[in-house]
Design a protein around this nucleic acid. Structure first.
Lengths: 218, 218
DNA sequence: TGTACATCAGTGAACGCGCGTTCACTGATGTAC
DNA sequence: TGTACATCAGTGAACGCGCGTTCACTGATGTAC
């Protein structure tokens, strides 16, 4: 069995199981037995469970950041000095997000992982992501700033995270929500369909009127 | 040590630790040692760890649903046949959510738990919540339906969950986000402040224009 | 009022189990001379 | 071309550890007669 094979099988299996049940609830024995690989192989190739988790993320985020940088380059050269409209920025991000894991049907998996990274104890994961991939998000945030010049900085910060919450929650809880929706409306939604529904909501949320001033509020 | 004391100490400690680190990452030994209570006391009083988790939820949701039903009763008798406006419904929910855990500063804790319940493996938790507290949410959803008569049912369903995602993600990741916001803008936001910022975004999201038709989309 | 018994909160120690990790080892392949 | 050695992917078994749960037990309080 060639090295790449074992390593790939571990990563493929780990990402699915992590997304299904979380990090703590997925043991190396779960992964290696499902991947038909020796238990010790994880520690041999990755060093530790923690490093395996980070490797799972890297396998998504490396191609994502590369493509996203390229896509933003194109937008910037297309618009030059003019700010790129918010709708275009969001569209660009959505397209890149959808494009990257196209070969496997694993957008859900990745979003789930991202949600776990944010909410779970695993502080090391957020730090890992920030350290390795922070720059592309900073770049995106700066473009959003230029697209929404009337929004105070703090307000924009919070709204971006509100919208991030919407996307992560929806796509990571996708299976549960899909079940309910299907039962209630007999309608099976695809991820593309969901993103189509998300877009106007996100745009409207970002462009919402400012809240009444903090001073005036009780 | 009176019974109520031991039971309360366990619940108090468990809710904090669960919210900090998740369910799987919090052991009964963590809880009982921090609560200065015998290890076996959890199984004695609650029967199992799973039952303890549900008891932690029940301690919030029981008073919440009671108050929320009362508040909705008042709104319905105030508006009679007329639909209650969306803003009023959201305001009512926000007020109830803020009111309930007022004695402890534990809104964050509860939201975190709710987020975990949705995203984590713990299917038993979502089922528990649905079974015990589903009716009040159904009632709220029906009022929202009357407040947004132009929204197709499926669209409303998804938007409600988009907004739920925003709220849960924001309030459950509160500490992390607050750290970043404070570092970047030197501004410390309170939960009340955050909810003030959330309101216009949520209202705008619910009232966003309908997406282009699915047929027209690629 | 006194005694025998029941109830129940709480305890301390142990149970078996699954966990992540380690270690000595194998066997195939490549490299130096 | 042949031999000795190095490298490296992969293996099987064991390590110690912390986990949730169980069990026999204590001691205080309430109840029946």
């Amino acid at each position: 069995m060639a090295q790449t094979d074992t390593v790939t099988r571990i990563l493929d299996t780990a990402e699915v199981l992590f997304a299904e049940r979380g990090f703590a609830e997925t043991s190396l024995r779960n992964i290696t037995s499902k991947a038909k690989v020796n238990l010790a192989a994880v520690n041999y190739h990755f060093g530790s469970k923690k490093a395996l988790i980070q490797a799972v993320f890297a396998r998504y985020l490396d191609p994502f950041t590369e493509r996203f940088h390229t896509a933003l380059d194109e937008l910037e050269s297309e618009y030059g000095e003019r700010p790129v409209p918010l709708e275009v920025l969001l569209e660009c991000m959505a397209r890149t997000v959808l494009e990257v894991p196209a070969e496997r049907n694993s957008l859900k998996v990745f979003m789930r992982l991202l949600g776990l990274a944010y909410t779970q104890a695993q502080g090391h994961l957020r730090r890992f992501i920030q350290a390795h991939y922070g720059s592309v998000f900073t770049r995106f945030a700066e473009l959003v700033r230029r697209a929404t010049p009337d929004l105070p900085d703090a307000e924009r910060f919070w709204r971006l995270h509100f919208m991030l919450g919407t996307v992560i929650f929806t796509l990571s809880g996708l299976d549960a929500l899909r079940d309910i929706a299907e039962k209630d409306y007999g309608e099976h939604v695809s991820v593309r369909e969901l993103i189509r529904r998300l877009r106007p909501v996100v745009v409207a949320g970002m462009n919402a009127p400012l809240p009444e001033s903090a001073r005036a509020a009780s």
